[in-house]
Simulated assay, not measured.
Amino acid sequence: MKGNLLGYKTLKECVYEYLSRELEIGSLKPGDTIDEKELCERLNVSRTPIREALIQLETEGFVKILSRRNIYVNELNLDDIENIYQVMGALEAAAAERALERMTDKHIAELEKLCEKMKRALEKGDFSKHMDYNLKTHELFLELNDNELLTKIVLLLKKRLYDFPEIIKEVPEWDTMLVEQHIKMVELCKQGDKKGLNNLLKDIHWSFEKNRCYIISYYSKDGN
């Protein structure tokens, strides 16, 4: 990626997006080291935007900076996932409760469509679309939630779980169960049941213990 990166964005933003993409597609893998000097030469920029972008990625949990010559991509281990699930359960449950106060029949109809599309994608074995419709269901709750900080944290944590590197993997029993949970979410929304929706998201959907075996299968490197 030689040449001038600068457009309407700052150099730091461009470098951050470049590194994020490298993480997403797996060009930078967990455990890999990052050479600041080599990055400067490859992108034809000074060390300052490189360092600023790396600091942001470290703040977000994606890399670890020990020194200029010792920067590596963080691995996502089970302890990390358990911690993220605990936080996600609390935040998404809170977001869904707030969203329910603003939810209209139109929104519920959209949730029903997403559930049906999610189910059909699973039946066709299209796990990429299945995942996409899964995430869009949760995004609708976030869109209706008026807490911008909560939304920002949730989206960042989902990047940590799914995007760096991007994971699209079949876990049949889990995928089927997720469809059923999303259908139940819609039913609870129709009923205006805040407590039920909160419990479903926090104590079932984002329960690490209830999903442990599926999580291990999903994140296993050998595919088993």
Rank of each mutant, 00 (worst) to 15 (best):
S207E: 02
K119E: 15
N83A: 13
V154I: 15
C189G: 00
K113P: 00
D163T: 03
N77S: 05
N74D: 00
E13S: 15
D126R: 11
L78Y: 11
K169T: 12
R160T: 08
N134A: 04
K210P: 04
C213P: 02
E58L: 11
E52H: 12
R47S: 13
E187D: 12
E110C: 14
C213M: 09
F127S: 02
K195V: 14
N4P: 09
L149P: 00
C14G: 09
Q86S: 14
E60N: 14
T48G: 05
E97F: 08
H138R: 10
L178E: 06
M88A: 07
E116D: 15
E24P: 01
K124L: 12
L150M: 12
G7C: 10
D79M: 06
C40M: 15
I34K: 02
E166F: 11
S128C: 01
G3E: 11
N77I: 07
T104L: 04
F164A: 07
Y218R: 06
H107P: 01
T10S: 13
N145L: 02
L150C: 01
P172E: 09
K221F: 01
H138M: 03
V15G: 00
A94Q: 02
L140N: 12
H138T: 04
L200A: 10
F127M: 10
P165S: 05
G196Y: 07
P49L: 08
I183Q: 15
K169I: 04
D32A: 11
N211Y: 08
V45I: 07
K2M: 06
G3N: 11
C115F: 00
A109G: 10
K194G: 07
K152M: 05
K106S: 14
L135V: 08
L178H: 08
L178A: 06
Y72N: 07
T48V: 15
S46K: 14
N77T: 05
E41F: 11
L78S: 10
E22F: 02
S46F: 09
A90C: 05
P165K: 04
N145V: 05
E22T: 03
I168G: 06
C213R: 12
R68W: 07
R69N: 13
N199H: 14
F208S: 08
